[in-house]
Write a protein that binds this DNA or RNA. Structure first.
Lengths: 196, 196
DNA sequence: GGTAGACTATGACGGTCGTTATAGCCAGAG
DNA sequence: CTCTGGCTATAACGACCGTCATAGTCTACC
């Protein structure tokens, strides 16, 4: 057993690989068989580690990405909101460029999958939590640097939404120009927000 | 025959229905069989009207949505960039609310599907064109109201990206609050941009 | 050495996928 | 009335899907 907090290495490989594949093709286009193969794990193992099936695996992949981004965000926000935004932008730019515009954000990919009627699948709930987490980190930093609570919340939401949307624009256009433009405007917005 | 510019009514029903379904579930999760059934058309008809198959149908659905939004945008931008933004926001809010957070933007949905290696599928190319079109309309209006070319382009990209991202946030959270927050910030940004 | 339990291997279940082929219907032109 | 051509009906192709069941392997502890 020895249930370490990060789980078996093989288990974590599956989750990380799933996050990568979902960020490229979306959840429904990513099969469990492919996720297993991509992580060099047998298909049976996925149902051993994730007995609730695909939704559980997707939810963990979303949270995995969420925590990975949040770690970077927490670290860089120590130098202020502008530094945090720069890191946030650089992180996504790296993913988009390194994959030749093939990958994006798995959280966004999961967020736009239609849920069954009268139900909220675990992966979608996880996506909502991750967005909240990112917004919270940004808003906290803005408030710590003099922004009002309302203003901070609005700017934080705008940043997360704009960056997610911009990554999608970059993928469609196969260009990083949208990221450059969004970066310029958001940086100016942060300056204006914390200087007020 | 009688090839009208808008095509046979049945053909247009298929395209419109496809746009709706793609906006809910994404492209790969939407089967041609379901699109046909949703439009009350036989499966054979889809391959009659769209001989290139799913990609052609998806591309047309993307352009259909693009033109629909552009029409609203053109009309409201006559009253200035702020009015255009309001219409843009209201349009997406309507979709999200009317579908109980089940539908979003089909253009975004198509934009985040991974293309095959060394290839740009028609639907993805159409998504890029639609984003360009929307940005162009907004940027033109901003420049017509005194914004510099660079500033106008940056703000236009930010608006499109932010609204697309915000719609996804709303779906994940099952709340329109992100749209409220983004709206407030973008309106302020437009005011500052054209007043400068 | 034995035994429990974590993991793997294998194969199957019913179902849906995109696409194609073929034969048929049926309005309108001659 | 015949015939053409746009549209439909039906069935099939191989491939893949999520999930489950079962039997097997291997490792760590008693």
């Amino acid at each position: 057993m020895a249930k370490s907090s990060s789980g078996t290495p093989s288990r974590e490989r599956i989750v990380a690989g799933a996050a990568d594949m979902i960020s490229r093709r979306g959840l429904s286009a990513t099969s469990i068989r492919e996720m297993a193969k991509h992580a060099q794990a047998p298909l049976g193992s996925t149902y051993h580690y994730f007995p609730e099936g695909k939704q559980q695996l997707a939810a963990e992949a979303v949270r995995y990405t969420g925590e990975w981004v949040a770690r970077s965000l927490r670290k860089e926000l120590a130098d202020g909101p502008a530094a945090g935004l720069s890191a946030f932008l650089a992180l996504w730019r790296g993913i988009v460029v390194d994959t030749d515009f093939h990958a994006g954000c798995p959280v966004l990919a999961v967020a736009i999958e239609e849920p069954p009627a009268d139900e909220v699948p675990p992966a979608l709930a996880a996506a909502a939590e991750v967005f909240d987490q990112w917004e919270g980190l940004l808003a906290d930093s803005l408030r710590a640097h003099g922004a009002g609570a309302e203003q901070a919340a609005q700017v934080a939401t705008l940043i997360v939404a704009a960056v997610e949307g911009t990554v999608a624009l970059c993928r469609a256009k196969r260009s990083t120009e949208p990221l450059d433009r969004t970066a310029a405007q958001l940086q100016a917005l942060i300056d204006a927000t914390i200087k007020h």
